[in-house]
């Protein structure tokens, strides 16, 4: 097998396994206690775990450090890195450091605007955009150069490079073009924004397949189990770049009216969606973002028939 990195995730994807990744959000304090707890819960149920980088611009334990904690628990981390808080000097420095500590997967993101978070008066950086970050990581690995062009004389960092795609943002037709730009820049796997609108995701994937992008990068469909009607409404109304169809909210409401547990219904919907996206051409895996609900992931993986996970070796 022709692998570009030591990433276990890359190996599984190349082997054609339908992969499962999940997400752990680091805490707003200096203890790794919850990270370790979540890592132990997820171990064996997912192939790799994303570690968010101060998501929604709220200060949290760094994705870099959290990824190391995950690694120590024997789980493979996908370190997320946004362009909001670091310039190219800090980014490359962190990349060298992260690689030296055994991190092999990187997800390159733009980052939510700081006005969403708890430091809205902060200065944002955006020295690079996400596509430039992808390209910088690729060049560090394949051309063994820093962003400035100076050679990395030895021990270049070799990351399996990921990027995000949001089929629910606008301009819709441009989303696939942008995905292609990311793949051209060096993205090898793609994790999408949470999918609640299957019809639109299918149309997106049709365009992806039309351009042959599914053969150039592994596309993991992003899914989020909805815990409550309030959460669904919040995502529907207040999260830019998300589409939560009204039928979905009504289905949760009906479940509630029928005396069913809304969270259970949310899990059932998520499992249904996994089964549906699996059948869509070009989908190479799923990325489960159980926001502040990490403990539900094993249940979802089991119910979706994705347990046990394959061995890498």
């Amino acid at each position: 097998m022709n692998l570009t990195t030591e990433s276990r995730l890359e190996k599984l994807l190349k082997r054609g396994e339908f992969v499962v990744t999940a997400e752990i959000g680091p805490p707003q304090h200096a203890s790794a206690h919850e990270i370790v707890h979540h890592a132990r819960l997820l171990k064996g149920y997912v192939d790799a775990t994303n570690i968010t980088d101060c998501q929604t611009a709220v200060v949290r334990l760094s994705s870099f450090a959290a990824a190391v904690h995950i690694l120590r628990e024997g789980l493979e981390p996908i370190m997320q890195m946004t362009c909001r808080d670091r310039n190219r000097i800090a980014m490359q420095s962190d990349l060298l450091g992260a690689y030296s500590l055994g991190i092999r997967n990187l997800l390159c993101l733009t980052g939510d605007h700081q006005s969403f978070g708890n430091h809205p008066t902060a200065k944002n950086v955006h020295d690079l955009d996400s596509i430039q970050l992808i390209n910088m990581v690729k060049r560090m690995r394949d051309d063994r150069v820093f962003a400035c062009g100076e050679p990395i004389k030895e021990h270049e960092p070799r990351f399996f490079i990921g990027a995000a795609a949001n089929p629910f943002a606008d301009p819709f037709e441009f989303r696939v073009v942008r995905l292609e730009k990311k793949i051209n820049a060096g993205a090898q796997f793609i994790q999408t924004q949470c999918i609640f609108d299957l019809e639109r995701f299918s149309r997106f994937m049709e365009m992806v397949v039309e351009r042959g992008l599914h053969e150039r990068a592994y596309i993991l469909a992003g899914l989020t189990p909805i815990k409550s009607i309030g959460a669904a409404r919040y995502m529907q109304k207040n999260v830019p770049g998300m589409i939560v169809p009204e039928e979905l909210v009504q289905r949760l409401r009906k479940a509630k009216d029928d005396g069913k547990n809304v969270a259970d219904e949310g899990v059932d919907i998520c499992v249904e969606f996994i089964n549906k996206v699996r059948k869509i051409k070009g989908v190479a895996g799923v990325h489960i973002m159980a926001i502040a609900w990490e403990e539900i992931v094993p249940t979802i993986v089991q119910k979706a028939g994705l347990y046990p996970r394959p061995k890498a070796d």
Partner: peptide
Amino acid sequence: KSLLNGPCGGSQYGKCEI
């Protein structure tokens, strides 16, 4: 966000996420 390679995932209905 001063992006140079296209819109971020927060662009929706023609508006900026902020």
